[in-house]
Design a protein around this nucleic acid. Sequence first.
RNA 1: GCGGCUAUAGUUCAGGGGCAGAACGCCUGUCUGUGGCACAGGAUGUCGUGGGUUCGAUCCCCACUAGCCGCCCCA
Length: 431
Amino acid sequence: MTTLKAVRGTRDLLPPETALWNRIEATARAVFARYNFGEIRTPVFEDTALFSRGVGEETDIVSKEMYTWEDRARAQSEKTQTLTLRPENTAGVVRAYIEHKLGETGQLQKLYYIGPQFRRERPQKGRYRQFSQIGAEVIGPPSAGSESPLRDAEVLEMLATLLDELGIEGWTLHLNSVGSSADRARYNDALRAALVPVVGQMCADCQRRAVTNPLRVLDCKVPADQPIIDTLPVIADSLDEASKAHFAAVTAALDAAGVPYTRNHRLVRGLDYYTRTTFEFTHGGLGAQNALLGGGRYDGLSEMIGGPKAPGIGFAMGEDRLVLTLQTQNPAAPQVLVDAYIAPVGEAMNAAALNLARELRRQGLWVELGDGSFRLKKSFEAADKTARQIVILGEDEIQTGILTVKNFSTGVQTKVPRGELAVFLAEPAGA
RNA sequence: GCGGCUAUAGUUCAGGGGCAGAACGCCUGUCUGUGGCACAGGAUGUCGUGGGUUCGAUCCCCACUAGCCGCCCCA
């Protein structure tokens, strides 16, 4: 029989690595709570139309990266539906916002999510076909202040705080405004016009992009093209007064809060729904996938998928990339040791050992249970790898009610009455 | 989807057309109620999968699969 393996681009996460994932998620939840975000969980698959309309038919994600299938009709009367594993989560959140009429509350909705997303791309470091995103959205009717630049600034400030608390060192916030859709159309025309005389001197990719998607020329990394790109118009000059004022208010608030950022005129994001503020937090050491997270404002998304006017701003962090970054920063993750390893001496002690373990675990101690069939030496070897202390439970200990505890970091061995055991074991090593 | 590199023990890797290797880890013993250190011994495996060339392939060739790197794009 052929051995089954995790399918391409998916992977198993095992201990101790999962501890890091849990720490990241716990930190994110704690920070979101302080900013009054609540958790939303949307389905992992949705009607395909949600993504084609919301994310954009022409985007790479929709045109070639989605896992899509025809759902079987179970009855004659039932129509087949085309479903898709979510490639991102913002569209799903906005769909839920519309479906549950959250706009009718009149309140700003602040929602966060943590969960798997799916894109059928060529796997690479920091890029998987099933990957996890941690994201949040601030969305609501304009009367709730959802269009305020303060919301943009607050989200960015929260992200800076979150990355700091996660221990991510050396991140950079790239900030730009892509304006309204009208601004973007105007800029596209300007860019096309400016490219005509110079594109002949640029790389093959740029020559193609100049035709298909001029904004992508700004992403070019070919050194020889950079001087030419520097001469192209910047989108800031194509913004209308309202977009300019919005952006100025965002940067002013960031300055006041002391959040560092760099204005990046070339930051154009790939999803159709972005308007005005767009941003990316990047980190070196991730290779070609240097973006830890990306996001922006999406003032028209709700209406694009048939909802009420509901401006919003949000982001998605690549959890896999956070893990990679933290692992690179700190390659030697310390082994987590349990408080005590209980070593029964002889199989006759097994039952008593389970009872002792139960007692200690119920008092909150982390306890590993050995086996009386092991020679004591073997118990010590096993215990040394997994626990801070070993508790020996043999005939002597049962007779006297006084247990033998040895601390591995100090090497000190102590006799402890059973009644005091939990308190003794809970004390940190060397205390 | 395209291009480059890679695939050998649990792990990290060396090797090379004719008995499959190292280090670490693992097991046993020196030590029948005491770990780490030391010493002595031991087991590792379909050499990614399938085909081809050859007397003989883990090694050479082809395809496939997977990983890494780059492109595209993105988290």
